[in-house]
Design a binder for these strands. Structure first.
Lengths: 223, 223
DNA sequence: TCAAAAGTGTTCAGTGTACACCCATGG
DNA sequence: CCATGGGTGTACACTGAACACTTTTGA
């Protein structure tokens, strides 16, 4: 069952990257999809991605493709897993290094919306290639890492309320959290600090605004 | 800074796998190294690995190379990380999918010992390529995963004493553990069950022999 | 004045941690 | 009989979980 590599320009470029880009809005986690239209997959959805150039690392490749295809820049990225099933791409042997990317929903306005779709994570359609498997792996990983690190900060704006933070946790971990216990915990591991500012313009008591106190990834058993 | 791919048969084979094979004996964690002798690296140590064939997955490739080069079969393997620095291999662009492998020390007698060395993890010499970085990543990951899963079983014989199990934990987590608390914990998450047999031939009271109760990977906050 | 989310402590249960002695064997 | 690791229970501290009311704003 040797690979074919027929019709393609893929001759040398067996290596690709794919991104699972997450954001949170409307009380749910969303994944960014792109429309593909090839002989093998006509009018289907797939993850954004593309081939790795000979002169770039996988990390560079993810960032380049993301920016080229979606306009998103400077997003948080972390390597997920390398998928190497032999027939994952019908055009020939393509091994893909998949990444997780996190974006605050405030930054997604600037997306070229043509052929791009933020799909709720629980409502994914059948995707091209093995992309359902990739998203599934990414969801597992995201949930785990949110549970014991401070990566969730990359899904929020620079300044945020504790309510927003709590909602983000609840959406990703998929279970409700007690408000008072949540705050106690968050303060005890000191993930956040007060900005002193308050949120205004909402039809309820103004919330204190916070920022994350450490932009590096910290490993701490959280919730 | 485009890659060269000169002298080699590497033209198409940009993809490789490398294994960080761990075992525990003599009260320390050991990593399996192979001698390399190339124009670029003369008489140096490196991780076992090799190119991925067009008709095999990365998982298959790791297992094949491990068996070919060390005789080890049916070891536990798990994908670690994909290393894609442009100049990691002086012969040209080689991207490597690195794996962690765990072997019980009882099984390493069968090694072809020529040019193979079980090196204590704390005493690694400078390795060829970027292999020090790979081992470093593997050590971090191993420590983390031992802490919240039952993967440690793959470092022990089928039947083992709680003393052996505790020592394995202490070596990998690098801190002493209280014997009574350890046993309470291990029983409470029921990782193990008694075989009914006892260890004999040691100059002390015979220990009960146990097996792991679940060979699947379980995620449980452990120690 | 109503709706909506913000903010705030205490109690109780369960888990983690510290700690010391006798036992069974081989040499 | 000595050295070596095996096996066992209790008390205390700490952490996680449950739980309800007042506050401040915009509409």
């Amino acid at each position: 069952m040797p690979n074919t590599l027929k019709k393609s320009k893929l001759r040398f470029a067996v290596l690709a990257t794919d991104s699972v880009v997450f954001t949170v809005f409307n009380d749910s986690l969303h994944v960014l999809l792109m429309e593909v239209n090839t002989p093998d997959f006509s009018n289907m959805w797939a993850l954004p991605g593309g081939l790795i150039n000979p002169d770039e690392t996988a990390d560079d490749s993810v960032k380049r493709h993301l920016e080229e295809k979606t306009g998103l820049k400077d997003t948080y990225t972390e390597q997920l897993y390398t998928f190497s099933s032999i027939d994952r791409d019908p055009r020939g042997r393509v091994v893909s290094v998949a990444y997780i990317c996190l974006v605050a929903s405030g930054r997604i306005k600037s997306l070229k919306t043509e052929k791009l779709w933020w799909c709720p994570a629980e409502k994914l359609p059948g995707l091209a290639y093995d992309h359902n498997e990739i998203v599934h792996t990414a969801l597992e990983r995201l949930e785990a890492r949110v549970g014991y690190t401070n990566v969730i900060q990359h899904l929020l704006a620079k300044e945020f309320t504790l309510g927003e933070l709590q909602r983000a946790y609840e959406i990703i971990l998929k279970h409700p959290i007690d408000k008072r216990n949540f705050r106690k915990k968050i303060f005890s591991v000191d993930f956040v600090k007060k900005t002193g500012k308050k949120q205004r313009g909402e039809a309820h008591r103004p919330a204190d605004l916070y920022t994350f106190s450490d932009s590096n990834i910290r490993i701490i058993e959280v919730l």
